[in-house]
């Protein structure tokens, strides 16, 4: 008797294709694929590209759900192609399309540049008013385990764009900042080492900012890393309202804890040389 792991399935894969030099609108193309258990959608796309159609374009890198490059719409749901097994989704027909709410560069490759632009605008890094301490640290910023918990889950974001594709507000309002940049703004606002919340709040409270979120929660449902951007957005709204009504509760920025002189510090590890000339 044939084992389940060896059983082969014939699956029709419908891929949405778009070549900006040839096509005016996206079209659908069918490929027939033999699938075995454990085969991911990304494996299937590689199989098609290698043996059936070398012109098929898609983006990938790590193949293990870490880099976020291969996000696409799989049977109507945004997901990572490397993290989705074909037989978990279907045993007959599979549809694959680029992420919605993004412009398409080609085939399954969405243009993520605008999303990264908004993310960059959120100043997603530790900002301190004591710039000298940042440049030449004299100690460490103390942070308790509890304070770390406040933002830890939001650091797991891999910027794949799946939350942006799942968001119904993004679908109607292209000016909306989006769940990923907003969640990342909260991630740094909630970090006790950071002092830049005031600057970020100026950005997120503009029109099409944090208050445009209708709390559908699809971003959190779709996130392949278990991050909860909807929660970050609601917590940020709460902080903003507390600020507006001057209800207090604003956290204090972590102070520098000087290390005792008796402690021997190791030399800093030198940064590796650049692999390409700058």
């Amino acid at each position: 008797m044939e084992k389940d792991t060896e059983k082969k399935y014939q699956i029709a894969v419908y891929v949405r294709r778009f070549d900006p030099e040839r096509d005016e609108v996206p079209r659908q193309q069918r490929y027939d694929l033999t699938v075995v258990q454990g085969m991911t959608v990304l494996d299937g796309l590689h199989e098609i590209k290698q043996n059936q159609d070398p012109t098929l374009a898609f983006r990938f890198s790590c193949r293990m759900g870490v880099c976020g490059s291969c996000a696409m719409l799989i049977n109507g749901k945004p997901a990572l192609a490397c993290n989705t097994q074909i037989l978990d989704v279907t045993q007959s027909a599979l549809t694959v399309a680029p992420l919605p709410n993004f412009n398409i560069i080609r085939d399954l490759v969405p243009d993520l540049v605008p999303m990264f632009g908004v993310h960059k605008g959120m100043q997603p890094y530790i900002k301190r008013s004591d710039a000298k301490e940042m440049e030449e640290p004299t100690g460490e910023f103390f942070q308790s385990a509890h304070e770390l918990e406040e933002y830890l889950q939001f650091t797991y974001c891999i910027k794949c764009g799946i939350c942006m594709a799942a968001c119904p507000t993004m679908a109607t309002d292209r000016e909306y900042l989006g769940p990923m940049p907003l969640a990342q703004a909260y991630r740094y606002n909630a970090d006790t080492r950071d002092d830049g919340a005031k600057d970020r709040k100026e950005i997120v409270t503009r029109n099409h900012g944090v208050f445009s979120c209708h709390y559908a929660g699809e971003c959190s449902n779709a996130c392949p890393k278990g991050v909860d951007p909807a929660r970050a957005i609601q917590l940020m709204k709460k902080d903003l309202v507390r600020d507006y009504f001057k209800l207090g509760g604003a956290r204090k920025c972590a102070q520098v804890h000087k290390l005792p002189d008796t402690i021997e510090r190791k030399e800093k590890i030198a940064a590796p040389a650049y692999t390409v000339e700058r």
Partner: peptide
């Protein structure tokens, strides 16, 4: 902060 004010009063 204008949007924060609008939204806060919207909820109230």
């Amino acid at each position: 902060m204008k949007e924060t004010a609008y939204w806060s009063w919207f909820i109230i």
